[in-house]
Nucleic acid binder design. Structure first.
Length: 446
RNA sequence: CGGGGCGUAGCGCAGCCUGGUAGCGCACACGGUUCGGGACCGUGGGGUCGGAGGUUCAAAUCCUCUCGCCCCGACCA
């Protein structure tokens, strides 16, 4: 209905983005905590899928997960000059511990903060400093290298302007921190992890990306150089979707992370750091979703198949649901995540819209006619909803499994085609200026 | 942080200019008829109008402050 409709992309892209998130039940602003968001179960399930795929690749490249404190001593920030300068304004600072509750005469409880800390803590805006501190303790010899650590955690950056998933004051991410014996090795690591990000983006999220180097003004505060992957959104704008930094010996020097090389000489380590965040979900939305709501690539869909029973009488209901459960079990055995939507009091059409908005890749109808014919009706989220095909119930799970990988591929191809249609290749600066001229729509690759 | 817009029921909104007992649609609850793409009828529940002050006999409405959200910009993942 009009009250919960989704604004079209053409009419208002920013509004559309928020509508998709609301209707897809992914997240909502935490209006009681400035700039933060509540990630709802469906949104969080997508994050868990991204996490799982990313984590597997991080471990496969030799890294180990660990966890470091949320709070960082203020003095740590001061050790790397350009690092503080970059993050200073975004830091939330913890200055007190303990509260005192005072009950006034009217019965109201007033709360005041109690003990001022000797040294304030900063809520981590990123963990190079505290991890650098521990690297210094853990690394003595070239035999301790490379040190390959990753942590999954939350981060706080006091942002001036926030947008759900794309930029929130608190966000979830993974941050890798590594130390190496040579610059050559650490640079190799920087690009290895950039490639992991590109792999996840393209082969899991079906989101084509371009690898690039950030300009000096854009690079990570404290890095020698920063690399990133950029994806193109449906409004033609680029989204930075993952970064990998060459930290050189900057943090090694700042935190005194030294090792003895094979020749017995003392050297500073060469470090890297790399991160990917919940922003990826924002990129996912803006890459694939349409005016009907969320579209999820099968590899990231918490629910891949929904079975909608169609019936009039109780007898029909019994038959249809029986066939539905049989199909559900077969799909589960084939490794698909599937839901039989037997919700009472909701008509089939309403169920279709509900799951469509949530981005479920395939919806299946089973009605009395299908049970009689031994078939079911299949609708793909990446196609026009009027486009339906029939599928024999026997062996349907296998066909659906294949369909999933087809959808995964076709979403990536579609996104690539879109990007190609908006991207202009230029060879000279004059061409660049010319290309920018007509309305500025589109992005450009030099 | 600069410029603009907006906070009224779970969601989307009207009412505000011109103060006078808080409304609509969807959602929700119950009953019935329905059911292959958002069903319909009837009945009902739900709001100290973001918050705090002020003006007034009287404030959703006028004034001041404040918090939050959205958009553009600068900055970032």
């Amino acid at each position: 209905m009009s009250s919960d409709a989704i604004t079209s992309r053409e009419k208002d892209f920013a509004k559309w983005y928020q509508d998709v998130i609301r209707q897809g039940d992914l997240a909502e602003p935490a209006e009681v905590v400035r700039g933060c968001m509540v990630i709802k179960p469906h949104g969080y399930a997508i994050w868990e899928k991204i996490q799982a795929e990313m984590d597997r690749r991080i471990k496969a490249t030799g890294h180990k997960n660990a966890y470091f404190p949320l709070l960082i001593p203020l003095s740590f920030l001061a050790k790397e000059a350009s690092h503080v300068e970059g993050f200073a304004m975004e830091c939330a600072v913890v200055t007190h511990s303990g509260l005192k509750a005072v009950r006034g005469p009217d019965g109201k409880v007033e709360i005041e903060v109690k003990n001022e800390l000797e040294e304030p803590y900063v809520i981590r805006p990123t963990s190079e400093t505290i991890i650098g501190h521990y690297f210094a303790k853990w690394i003595q010899s070239h035999r301790d290298l490379p040190m390959l650590i990753n942590q999954w955690c939350n981060i706080m950056r006091w942002e001036m302007r926030t947008r759900l998933f794309l930029r929130t004051s608190e966000f979830l991410w993974q941050e890798g921190h590594t130390a190496h014996a040579t610059h050559e090795e650490s640079l190799e690591e920087v690009h290895r992890m950039l490639n992991v990000y590109a792999d996840v983006a393209e082969n899991v999220m079906a989101m084509p990306v371009i690898r690039g180097k950030k300009t000096d003004s854009e690079k990570f505060a404290g890095a020698v150089s920063s690399f990133c992957i950029e994806a193109m959104m449906q409004d033609g704008k680029a989204l930075q979707a993952g970064t990998s930094h060459d930290l050189g010996q900057n943090f090694g020097r700042a935190f005194d992370v030294k090792f003895q090389n094979k020749a017995g000489e003392i050297e500073y380590v060469w470090q890297t750091s790399w991160g990917a965040t919940t922003r990826l979900i924002g990129g996912l939305i803006m890459t694939h979703s349409d005016d009907a709501g969320l579209v999820l690539p099968p590899l990231l869909a918490p629910i891949q198949v929904v079975i909608i029973p169609i019936f009039k009488s109780d007898e029909e209901h019994a038959k249809v649901v029986e066939a539905g459960h049989k199909l559900r079990r077969e799909c589960e055995e084939a490794g698909l995540s599937v839901v039989l939507d037997d919700r009472d009091g909701m008509r089939p059409g309403a169920k279709h819209f509900d799951w469509e908005q949530k981005g479920v890749p395939v919806r299946i109808e089973i009605g009395p006619r299908d049970v009689a014919a031994g078939s079911c009706v299949v609708k793909r989220r990446d196609k026009d909803p009027k486009e339906k095909s029939s599928l024999p119930l026997t062996g349907a799970a296998t066909v659906l499994k294949t369909l999933m990988s087809e959808m995964q591929t076709s979403l990536l191809e579609r996104a690539r085609a879109f990007r190609a249609s908006r991207m202009v290749k230029v060879d000279t600066f004059d061409q660049f200026k010319q290309a920018l001229d007509p309305g500025g729509k589109g992005n450009f690759l030099l």
